[in-house]
Design a binder for these strands. Sequence first.
DNA 1: AATGCCGAAATCGTATACAAAATTTGTGCA
DNA 2: TGCACAAATTTTGTATACGATTTCGGCATT
Lengths: 249, 249
Amino acid sequence: MQNVTGDLNGSYSLPPGRALDICHQLESAILRHRIRPGMKLAEDEVGETFGVSRTVARTALQALAHGGLVTIERNRGAFVSRPTIREAHEVFEARGLIEPRISRMAAKAITESQLERLNRHIAAEHEAMKRGDMGLALSLSGTFHTAIAEIADQKVLTQILHSLVSRSSLIIALYWQRPDTTCESHSHHALLEAFARHDANAAEEIMKSHIVDLHSGLNLVERPEEEPSLADVFSSREFAISRPRREPV
Amino acid sequence: MQNVTGDLNGSYSLPPGRALDICHQLESAILRHRIRPGMKLAEDEVGETFGVSRTVARTALQALAHGGLVTIERNRGAFVSRPTIREAHEVFEARGLIEPRISRMAAKAITESQLERLNRHIAAEHEAMKRGDMGLALSLSGTFHTAIAEIADQKVLTQILHSLVSRSSLIIALYWQRPDTTCESHSHHALLEAFARHDANAAEEIMKSHIVDLHSGLNLVERPEEEPSLADVFSSREFAISRPRREPV
DNA sequence: AATGCCGAAATCGTATACAAAATTTGTGCA
DNA sequence: TGCACAAATTTTGTATACGATTTCGGCATT
């Protein structure tokens, strides 16, 4: 299978380096729901996990904070963000404003090879869902949206959208209620067909209602408790993120 | 005069502290065109200017980089960003998408006291312009836009807009060509009248054409040359910020 | 048993030290 | 003079040290 997950780069305005790598790794883990909202990301722990000093870990955490994925509290540390209900609404309203426009632009500009790529992307989504890897499926359905922004060739809007989509993933982790995630890839399919026809109006409309669907699929009435039960945390072994690489000196 | 410039806070997702202060001071200086695009911001220089170590200066610069005001190149350092022509177009297109919507929301939600505040804001703009302090006038005309977003009470969009407006200031520093800056405050006045009538449609339309005006007031055909640095921006008392407290050990 | 206080441990904020990379300066040669 | 290349300087990248703040656990008190 092709590299279809890749390259949500370009955000995180850091110079290339280890901090950026750590950013991407942490982001990937959060987007796949391998690290839940609210979880503490201690500087030392992050540093040891990736074999760097606190300095670098700190840089990465601050970068993630600017993207909204992480919240830093003074003298307390960094935590995976827990968007409020209010913020959840705002994020999806913002997406509802931005994405239909992007979708329209993409429909006009898309090339054959980009259509191909989106097709493979959707296929990978299906594949992941069939395997039951919902974390990966969800992550892919997010990158699908940013991929469209890249096709529209709007760097500024792409970066904005990237942040919104990332936060959407947190919101979904906290508030998603609907078990029928299939509707998701249905919309994506419909969108792709509009793209193939270069039908800008259809693309815009489909995207608009797709965002509304996502928004209304959330249960935004009560905020979940701070900590998931201990049983939840220890029952799954999905938390096996990259092991410490630090050699015992 | 009231505090009308204030509080473009809330962005820069850093915990409160010296780094955040430095962020705001640097941002203010950049927005007032006291520091030109392209100017180098060396970590040591920033640190000594504000009386902190490189660590803190670095944090501030990275935060500014995430807002797009500063660009960091690996092993070379931080510079005030020089938006490309391409990015200039994208920024104003994004504002053209977002701000009319925000303006509409603000028109519906605005209160008497907020109207008052915007009035004072415009008055301060006039005042600054009359005094010939174009830097301050420009900065105020920027915060006017973010103030509207705050009235619309949309935190997510406000943060996005804040970044776009900041970058607009860089763009104007590089590409502005029109001498008649008066049209500016005219639009702002018209907007305020629509707000006073709670006329959402008018507010949206006025904002839309205001953004178009700004965009078309730029000379986006050729990128100006680099220009070298001059670092005594902070020597004047307007930025009489915390002096270096470092005792000679 | 519940509550409040206090010391120990953990964690963060900041400064500093040193290594690595880039920039500038200096020098020799054509 | 102009260019090429090497030394010296500057500047950044990263690690580590230490003080400050918070958190946690035990113990006394109610």
